[in-house]
Computed example of a mutant assay.
Amino acid sequence: MPNAYSRALKAHDNNQEGIRLQKILAQAGFGSRRKCEQIILDGRVEVDGELVTELGARADPSKQEIRVDGSRVRLNPNHITLALNKPRKVLSTMDDPKGRYTLRDIVGDKYERIFHMGRLDYDSEGLILMTNDGELSQHVMHPKYEVEKTYIATLQGRISGNVCRRLVSQGVQLDDGWIRLDHCAIIDANHDTTLVKVVLHSGKNRIVRRIFDAVGFPVKRLVRTQIGPIKLGDLKSGSYRVLSQTEVRSLAKEVGL
């Protein structure tokens, strides 16, 4: 026997109200229309908590909650999310009273109400995410979700594998408490410097620099290469790109949306 929601969806379909579910899923980055039809037939889609397996089903994404495999489908044509490669000597802000170079000088005023999700210090470079989606930004920056961040750091001096392992297994005590790296691997080294890849969840100010200062290997250069599932890739310094719906969906899933 069809449930109440299935009957309501049929009524929607008969009245040509709402948007066909496969079209909504395609617009949200789940693949081609045909692939999205299969997702529905496979029983992976819920609307307002009810399973939907009918290809004729329609829904209103502005009024109804649509989920695929338990993750919410977020579809707002006015939302935009950017990946930006911040150069050194650029402030992680949109405006500076002293007239220094900011993120606004890179993205301009093309996108209304866009803001950055987290920061990089003035001398660091690499990936910054920006959006005008307040809910997404709140989740990405909230400590509860502990989004993983990856950095490539050039250290002064030659660090040993033992130090890296200790930073992962034991951590180091800073002024604001103990902190551990999730991952630390030496990429290259010479007599004067060491190149390391580090991964951690903390978003505290200058955290990577403070960690290596504490063990006697100051950071000479720091590049953030990944935030959650979003990678810097070959994005040139001082440029940005718009994230695809698939990328935004993967980021949203990472932070519980």
Rank of each mutant, 00 (worst) to 15 (best):
P61F: 03
D109N: 15
T150E: 15
N15K: 15
R158T: 01
R20S: 04
T102M: 07
T102K: 06
K220F: 03
N205A: 03
I80Q: 12
H142A: 13
K86L: 02
G238F: 02
A185C: 12
I24E: 12
E37D: 14
I80N: 03
S244V: 08
S250L: 13
E112W: 07
E17Q: 14
L82W: 00
P77I: 12
G18P: 05
K144T: 12
I230Q: 03
D109R: 15
M117T: 09
G18H: 02
L84P: 04
G43F: 08
T102A: 06
L235G: 03
V147F: 08
D176R: 13
I128K: 03
K89C: 06
G203P: 02
S92D: 00
K220V: 12
L9T: 08
R74G: 06
N132W: 13
Q138A: 13
Q170Y: 15
S6E: 15
I40F: 09
N162C: 01
R34T: 14
G256I: 03
Q16C: 10
P61M: 06
E247C: 08
C36T: 11
Y151I: 00
A11F: 14
F30T: 05
I227A: 07
P143A: 08
D133G: 08
R20G: 03
E54F: 02
N132K: 14
L243D: 06
P97G: 04
L222G: 02
Y101Q: 10
S92R: 01
L235M: 05
R166D: 01
S239V: 04
L120Y: 00
L195I: 06
P87E: 03
Q38K: 14
S244R: 07
N85D: 00
V90R: 00
A185Y: 11
L84E: 07
I128S: 02
V248Y: 11
